[in-house]
Design a protein around this nucleic acid. Structure first.
Lengths: 273, 273
DNA sequence: CCAAAAGTGTTTATCATACACCCATGC
DNA sequence: GCATGGGTGTATGATAAACACTTTTGG
């Protein structure tokens, strides 16, 4: 159902190209991209309080007057390259925008309405920056979960930052829809599968874990019940940190074992008819 | 999360075209299709015993010798038309292949590997029948659930029939993968949401309903426990058929009310950490 | 008369839910 | 010394799981 975003791309040309100067990369991309298919990555992070999304500023000024024509934000996305697998395109975007390999990445929906880039601002942007792009672009949505401490928001040339999912700035194209749908997909999955760990450091405390579930699922949980539940899950394992005793500044650390999870998961037949 | 496949397409040109002669439709399609984007519909049906998929035969003979070069099956699919929304393309395919409007349809995954049509047989087929098609076709997968009694398998010109999902014939392209993934998506969803009714007639018996869950989810259920569970679900409603008494040949009919479901669904916080 | 399907209740075990107090630390 | 966050147990109610016999009908 999901895969790790490792950069073992089958697209040799691009890999080689990255060893050249930056302008060279740019030219290669422009020549080789598929005009009507793109990927958009909704990159989720968690700052111990709220769920966040990584967004990049989009600014367009009038060349003569300097008037600001567009000022909003976009997701991390790019057109698929000729000869590139869809998943590799998503991995490539992630690697470029966050510098990270091997992070949780999952395709969740494809956006293919005819009018998704027909807004006047978006038309202006596309015609100015990407004149060779098709009018009808299909975009394949991926969401990825990262430990946001690992992402330096200023990685690229563009101005990129985290926004709480509850307080999104104005967004380009249909990116608001894309984010909402990603959020639904993330929530739906988090109810059934242990993917929350992807948003946390390897070592985490139960308080962190509980906050994560509360923030992402939008629910309130009782601390004792949560901890009781965790203690039954064999795949959430107490680290032996050789600490004497837990205290507010010295809480106990846990880690998640997917191997144990796969082996011990129960099949309780609790379904909705 | 899903939508009904009604044919309120925003693609005026095609709608008008269907009123012309068949050859005309063909020409319009060939001229106006997007060469690298298609939709594939995995149409599931249920015959009171097994879950089935609707497949169409693909045959290619050598023009001179008559030798059979290809003989296998494909899903119902087609390229997206210029100016057509993705969802409308899926609805169009469904309408063409089953004659049905207003059936359950859900997009579940997009298949974009470079090599998905690179098998020699598939290359031969594509070059013979659709020479103008791109080498790298992205296909958006939809699954739909129909009451299979409503589908006359010979609807189109092609030879189309139902196959049990456990006994699939040889399949074209990556259609086996596409079906497996559709099955996963269907199962995953059936655990959490009441979509099984879409595979049954409006009136159904509890035995039919239970068989459906057993067949699709691949589990065995206790009849008494199942019926107890159903009796707690207010959205599964006994029909007042004015029958005296239920018996083996005269079982009681039920129907499903989505309205009641939406109003009475419980939010039990039962999640996996 | 018998095979095949419809219908029905009780007990047990598991799990979600609700709820309150003590402790260690940094400020 | 106090505010903050970490840690802990018990009682109740809901529901999943296990389990067997009777009835009706068509062949």
């Amino acid at each position: 159902m999901y895969f790790r975003a490792q950069n073992h791309s089958s697209f040799g040309l691009f890999k080689k190209a990255t060893t050249f100067a930056t302008c060279k990369i740019y030219i290669i991309k422009m020549e080789k991209l598929i005009k009507n298919i793109s990927v958009d990555c909704v990159i989720f992070g968690f700052n111990s309080k709220t769920l966040q999304v990584l967004l990049t500023e989009r600014i367009l000024k009038d060349e003569k007057t300097g008037e600001i024509l567009i000022s909003d934000y976009t997701l991390q996305g790019h057109h698929v390259l000729v000869g590139e697998n869809l998943d590799d395109a998503a991995r490539r975007v992630l690697k470029e925008k966050t510098g990270l390999d091997n992070i949780y990445l999952e395709q969740y929906y494809t956006f293919g309405n005819v009018n998704r880039i027909s807004n006047p601002k978006d038309q202006l942007w596309v015609r100015t920056r990407y004149p060779e792009i098709s009018d009808h672009v299909i975009s394949v949505g991926y969401f990825s979960l990262v430990n946001s401490a690992l992402v330096k928001p200023d990685h690229g040339h563009e101005f990129t930052q985290w926004f709480p999912v509850e307080e999104l700035p104005p967004l380009a194209f249909d990116h608001e829809t894309i984010i909402q749908k990603a959020l639904e997909a993330l929530r739906f999955k988090l109810w059934r599968e242990p993917i929350g760990f992807e948003l946390l450091p390897e070592k985490f405390t139960l308080t962190q874990l509980q906050s994560l579930y509360e923030a992402v699922l939008g629910i309130k949980l009782d601390r004792r019940n949560f901890r009781k539940k965790v203690s039954q899950m064999k795949h959430i394992i107490l680290m032996d940190d050789h600490k004497k005793r837990s205290s507010p500044n010295n809480p106990q650390n846990y880690f998640f074992s997917r191997e144990v999870y796969e082996k011990t998961r129960k099949a309780r037949l609790d379904f909705t008819i």
